[in-house]
Amino acid sequence: MKRLIRRILSILLTLIVVSFAVFTMQSFSAGDSASYMISEEVGGAAADAYMKAMVPDDPFPVRYLSFLFSFLTGDWGRSVSGQDIAELITRKAGVTISLSFLSILLAVLIALPLSILSVRYSGLLRKAVSLSAVLIMAIPSFLTGFFLIIIFSAGLGLFPPAGYTSPSVSLLLWLRSLLLPSLTLALLHASLMIRIFRKALDENMSKPFTLSILAFGADRKSLVTQSALKPSLPVLYTLIASSLASAAAGSAVTESVFALPGIGSLLVSAALSRDARLSGIIVMLIALAVSVIYMLLECVLLAADPRTRREA
């Protein structure tokens, strides 16, 4: 219980710290992202009045609180090009969320069997898996994306190389347009998962309880799935959570390579258009989402392993 409370406090703390940081940094550069709306002829006094309306002369704490309030109530204002931010984000959130979940799903589907198999049958398989994981983690994820495009799209023509089809147009095309980008992220996350999860499996394999079962004549191979797997699961949950959390950052790059209209590419274009307001909102939203994910992780861990409940 204490842990849960700590987690909720953590979420609130994150909200305050991140929003404060964003707000402070934004107010130092208020001039740079003036509105797209002021036409070229409007000069001097009118522009000053407009800027004043944008950055009122209230004291700092008051401005911060009103900033926080408007964020919490969904009053997010307009982007540099005049579009409503709330509308932009709700429209694009679906793409990023589906990309994130699909990539974690694929990552687990790849990592779990491979981890178990390479503990069962060590030797060539284990080495091959290790080598692939090292290679994938050694290059930036967008390169993995390039190679997937070259092989599967330009080469074999199985998947579209870029672009997004919304599920309302066609479910099949939607999945196809998401597959290569999800696979790009999945390979990266899977490599990390395999490394850590496999280590956990190995550790549990050499724990006393497993060894004693072995001494009683149990079959080594099935032991992996029976005994070592369950205690290693919390590690897996943690990995899933941290992968989901870093999917936000990963999506910025992947969405750019595959031209997917999600929050990640929105953040990138906000950065390129020096849109402090839009990027600030996105950063705060992602920070919140990540804290919530970690809180959910905590709940799952508590439910999965009663022993942790007693560790206060």
Partner: peptide, 16 residues
Amino acid sequence: FVPDEVTREMGFEGGI
């Protein structure tokens, strides 16, 4: 509207 030239080209090649 497809600002990215690679996406335009590949979308065209792919028949989209």
